[in-house]
Design a protein around this nucleic acid. Sequence first.
DNA 1: GTTGAGCGTT
Length: 280
Amino acid sequence: MAEMYIRVAEEENEEPMEIPSEDDGTVLLSTVAAQFPGACGLRYRSPVSQCMRGVRLVDGILHAPENGWGNLVYVVNYPKETVLPDNKRKMDEIDASSATKIKRGDQKTSDLIVLGLPWKTSEQDLKDYFSTFGEVIMVQVKRDVKTGNSKGFGFVRFTEWESQGKVMSQRHMIDGRWCDCKLPNSKVSPDEPMRSRKVFVGRCTEDMTTDELRQFFMQYGEVTDVFIPKPFRAFAFVTFADDQVSYCCFRIDFKCSRTVQPKYSDVCSTFYGGLFPDPG
DNA sequence: GTTGAGCGTT
């Protein structure tokens, strides 16, 4: 395998840096550490399970996941701040500048947007609810400035990374409504749309089924989700396991007939034609 | 009948 680059960032939604692999497709931990001093490993969010997964590390060599590195963003692991006696010596070897980096890079939390709140839910209600997941350092309910009425969403922030992960991984019943907690849009880097694993599928006809879309898009890569809004809205979303795939599909336009046919945009046919079957 | 509702006064 020729040298390639994998994308690595300190946090999931931060601008990634491209790190070169070795000829055999592995990545040296030392190469990662050259850019992220103090790094002790990598993890990534599994496109299928949506859980964080560790990258296999043997003798300083990082091994690609089952299906290759793909275009996922790998997140740097740093040693925990609480160090066991056995690891003490290793920690001492890390220089002072990287020590501050460890604190910063050690999975700091971010605000989460809480969507779907009942109008009546207050800050205190939010705090009471989310405190069951861990220490809450901030809650907000966004309100109309004039009327003071809730806008139906808010924000929450936890002290612990683990609490944030747990909260993002599930839905929440708050005051009788199901709510979702996500990383807010404003935190997403500007080029995010091009890296989305999700493609918009326009001009759908009402008879199209999720199975049909799945069958069709499978030819481009592993499909993890197909969403067709109800009632019928003439569009759908298809989510792939690998974000590079959806980048390639970014400009595919659908002709919605019973047999689904893609139309190739200039972008796809020029730069990514190899990934697609011939239009004819 | 072409973007899932909703994205933050500091």
